[in-house]
């Protein structure tokens, strides 16, 4: 019995030691095309962060720092509107806003994309270089509502996207949840500067959904974009002129690019 116990302990000790060393090293392994992933042993053993859920809030997310009300920038802007399929819901109305207020609007819809898809590539930076926007609207997170250990898995990609946007003023539009998420909204809100995150998931925001149950229908998308634009003008860190076009009016953007899902 004792020998067997010693052997089991040795197996556990050596095995866990191997994983501990591997997870703390810069050494990367690949098996064919598959990357051998590293466990986050330090966090998961001794400092596991509690997994928080974003529940529908009665009040908007509070800003993390007290900020003075920013003055509205009334100049005409070149806006890059980029993100996942939610951009497709929002851009027709946003185009009407752009037209009414004299902005240029470049839209990039990458179906099925996530913060990881964008964060591991330079696509965002490439479009910034291509269109040279002085304002960015980004919507990502709808495909990541139910990811476990979201901070461990996605924080670095959100930080990378913020880094790619550099000093260009931006607003990150949160996903219109259809259910409480595992923390993506909280994580993005805490990562961006105050006044740069619009929370789309509050009880006063109702969405009529398309057949897929996730994407808002056209009428709901128009109302959603109206609320976002009003928020940008009045509450965001970088207000720009976004006077409302006639109710329900939509338009075409300056340019639209559609990217297919990764396979």
């Amino acid at each position: 019995m004792k020998k067997a116990y010693i052997a089991i302990c040795a197996i556990l000790l050596v095995g866990l030691g191997v994983f501990y060393a591997f997870s703390n090293s810069d050494f990367n392994l690949k098996l064919g095309e598959t990357e051998i992933k590293k466990g986050t042993f330090n966090e998961s053993l001794f400092a596991a962060a509690p997994q928080r859920r974003t529940k529908q809030r009665d009040v908007p997310l509070p800003p993390r720092k007290k900020q003075d009300k920013a003055e509205m920038d009334t100049t005409k802007k070149t806006i890059l509107f980029i993100g996942d399929s939610m951009v497709e819901c929002l851009f027709p109305r946003m185009s009407a806003y752009a037209k009414k207020n004299g902005h240029k609007l470049y839209c990039v819809v990458w179906y099925s994309s996530t913060t990881e898809v964008y964060g591991t590539r330079t696509t965002l930076k490439d479009y910034i270089n291509k269109y040279k926007p002085d304002y960015i609207l980004i919507t990502l997170g709808g495909n990541e509502l139910f990811i476990r250990d979201i901070r461990q898995k996605r924080q670095k990609f959100v930080d990378e996207l913020i880094r790619q946007m550099g000093n260009i003023p931006f607003v990150w539009i949160g996903p219109p949840n259809w259910k409480d998420d595992t923390g993506i909204n909280d994580m993005i809100n805490e990562s961006v500067p105050p006044g740069c995150f619009y929370l789309s998931y509050t009880p006063d925001q109702h969405y009529n959904r398309k057949k897929d149950g996730a994407h808002p229908k056209a009428d709901s998308s128009i109302l959603w974009m109206d609320r976002i634009c009003k928020w940008i003008m009045t509450k965001s860190a970088h207000p720009i002129r976004l006077e409302a076009p006639p109710a329900g009016e939509t338009a075409r953007p300056t340019k639209l690019e559609l990217l297919q899902p990764l396979r």
Partner: peptide, 24 residues
Amino acid sequence: FIIVVQLVIQFSSEEVQPFIYNQF
């Protein structure tokens, strides 16, 4: 034992696609 633990690590970070995007 190492294979088992690695499988756990590998799959705990794998994600399932929520939508079939080519349907719309």
